[in-house]
Amino acid sequence: MQDDRTLLAVRALGKSVPGPRLLFQHLELDVGAGELVAIIGESGVGKSTLLNILAGLDEADEGSVAIDGTVLGALDETARTRLRRERIGFVFQAFHILPYLTLQQNVALPLTLVSPDAAAAGTRAEAMLEAVGLGGRGDGYARDLSGGELQRVAIARALVHRPALILADEPTGNLDPETAARVLSLFAGAVRDNRAAGVMVTHSDASAAIADRVLTLGRDGLVERRDR
């Protein structure tokens, strides 16, 4: 269930790549607290680029992105980095779990980057591992986990600092259908339970079906898909 608070507000966003080639323009998007939006589209239309812009990892050519009222374009790089650490969670297709850290340390990483309280970070990380069904395994390492378990660790890490915005780039691309369904259910439930705004890009109709809204990305922005 979502509420009326808009956590992500995108206005008149446009982006081109060298060539030059227009990826998209006139892009508008609002995502509320507790809402999960799926963005689909053909390869090369700029889905991952859009996510990177929303995360402040890339810059648009025009338009603005605001996260919980803070406009990314108004921040210098230091402030933008701080906002990413404190207010954004990112779930990558390739997991990006650090092999030389324990699972607890991986999950706690967003907290340890912004707070010196290592004990509190560890406690919170253990609670998040419990929430994703990996309780008691915080001392283990990535080599001991299946793909689905690694993705659950990635989701726990993305949520541990209670971000306002959670972004996911093809979060089930490397998973079998049964594991993918479990991971998607967990991800969607976490967005809603934590009152975050969630944006997931995917090529999969099955993945998109779990979202509150499905939008198709094209050159002229986002269009809501009605055939659901």
Results as ranks from 00 to 15, higher is better:
Q93E: 07
R137M: 07
T123D: 12
N106R: 11
E86A: 14
R84K: 05
Q105C: 09
G136R: 00
L101W: 02
S115K: 06
G89F: 15
Y100N: 05
A118V: 15
E86H: 09
T78L: 11
Q105N: 06
G136D: 03
N106M: 10
T78R: 06
L109V: 10
A125F: 08
V132L: 07
F90D: 00
E86T: 15
E126Q: 13
L113Q: 10
G135T: 01
G133Y: 04
F90A: 01
T78Q: 13
A108K: 00
G89W: 15
E126H: 09
P110V: 15
R84L: 09
A120N: 06
A108Q: 03
G122A: 13
T78V: 09
G138I: 00
G122E: 01
E126N: 10
T102C: 14
L83V: 05
A121T: 07
P116W: 02
P116D: 15
L113S: 10
E77D: 14
R137E: 13
G122M: 03
P116G: 01
Q104G: 14
E126D: 09
S115R: 11
F92G: 13
Y100E: 11
E77H: 08
L98H: 14
G136K: 08
E86Q: 15
A108C: 10
D117A: 09
L98D: 03
V132G: 02
V107D: 11
G122I: 00
E77P: 03
R82N: 06
L103E: 09
E86R: 15
L129N: 02
A79P: 00
A79Q: 09
R85D: 05
G135K: 10
T102D: 15
L113G: 10
G138Q: 09
E77Y: 01
A127M: 04
